[in-house]
């Protein structure tokens, strides 16, 4: 069976005055209908650029320079601008991190939802309004009819993110990209928003790419996890395997940095060093300079993603040693 989304060796580079920045460097993964893939990593690991690449919205000076993005078997990179545009918001849609700034301040919430419907389905004003109000209701906004006429600044952060979800899901997309959808929200609201995304995705059998650096969110939502580091996927496995048998030292580091409620630790663990400079292409493993397992070999040859157990891919020369 072919996957809903199949990304193969995606490369997105940015031309900068200092050289070429390899923000996404040969990333591959798949997402099936109704499945949630979490892409995890630090800031600057290439998570968001990956999602923007799928949407075809990488902005200058960035460019997808290699690989393929197969959506229902069709390579998106070969689409014309118009074909791509017709996919966005309809077959593939996105929820961004910042509900405060992601809605246009000068248009009503209702207008911004019905705009999608009118763009893709050529609905008339009245029908679009009807559908938009239903959608506001679906995302759990009380008084949907009233909120339809409100401006974004009149709503709370949580409400705005619900509106963003309404915009993203109103055309019942097959793939939803949620780019840190709860990072900017209060903790109490976070859980509600995640539940909402999960519920609607299940109902519509939508494939979800969840981009996050919050492993708590991952445990809650994901079926599969791809851990990104320095523009590459370093470990890719089911959520159980990632949490129970992390096989890449970076994944282990991420898990070790989580605060644990039962242990009486004074200090949180933190990974030494910083994210790699993506302008320099290194010979060896990008994580080696921060890795406590690193040997001479790690600095000299680049590891490739290799199967370490059932559907468990790790790109580490010492995966077995790491897993222990």
């Amino acid at each position: 069976m072919s996957h809903l989304l199949e990304v193969n060796h995606l490369q997105t580079h940015f031309k900068t005055p200092d050289g070429i920045l390899r923000a996404v460097n040969g990333v591959s993964f798949t997402v099936d209908a109704g499945e949630t893939l979490a892409i995890v990593g630090e800031s600057g690991s290439g998570k968001s650029v990956t999602s923007m690449s799928i949407l075809g919205l990488v902005s200058d000076p960035g460019k997808v320079v290699g690989g393929e993005i197969l959506f229902e078997g069709k390579n998106l990179l070969r689409l014309t601008k118009k074909e791509y545009r017709n996919m966005r918001g309809k077959a593939i849609s996105v929820i961004f991190q910042e509900p405060m700034t992601s809605l246009n301040p000068i248009f009503t919430v209702g207008f911004q939802i019905s705009e999608v419907l009118r763009t893709h389905y050529k609905l008339n004003r009245k029908a679009a309004k009807q559908r938009a109000i239903e959608m506001l209701d679906t995302v759990g906004i009380a008084n949907a009819e009233k909120v339809y006429a409100r401006y974004p600044h009149q709503l709370s952060g949580g409400m705005r993110q619900r509106v963003m979800i309404a915009i993203a899901l109103v055309c019942q997309p097959k793939l939803l990209i949620a780019d840190e959808p709860t990072t900017a929200l209060d903790v109490t609201i976070q859980a509600q928003i995640l539940e909402l995304i999960q519920k609607l995705a299940k109902e519509q059998n939508t494939g979800v790419i969840l981009i996050t650096h919050d492993l708590g969110v991952v445990a809650e939502m994901a079926d599969k996890v791809a851990v990104m580091y320095g523009g590459e996927i370093v470990e890719h496995a089911s959520v159980e395997q990632i949490f129970h048998r992390p096989s890449h030292p970076y994944t282990q580091g991420l898990l070790a940095s989580l605060p644990k409620i039962h242990e009486d630790e004074q200090r949180l663990y933190s990974l030494p060093g910083t994210v790699p400079n993506l302008l320099e292409s290194s010979e060896g493993c990008t994580f080696a300079p921060r890795c406590k397992f690193a040997s001479e070999a790690c600095l000299q040859s680049k590891p490739r993603l290799a199967l370490q157990g059932e559907q468990h891919w790790v790109s580490c020369l010492k995966a077995e040693e790491v897993r222990g």
């Binding site: 949407l55 918001g89 700034t101 301040p105 705009e115 763009t119 915009i167």
Partner: peptide, 14 residues
């Protein structure tokens, strides 16, 4: 360069 312009593009607007 505002976020809402990115949103507008992600909606598939011309």
């Amino acid at each position: 360069s505002q976020d809402y312009i990115r949103t507008a593009r992600s909606k598939g607007l011309r």
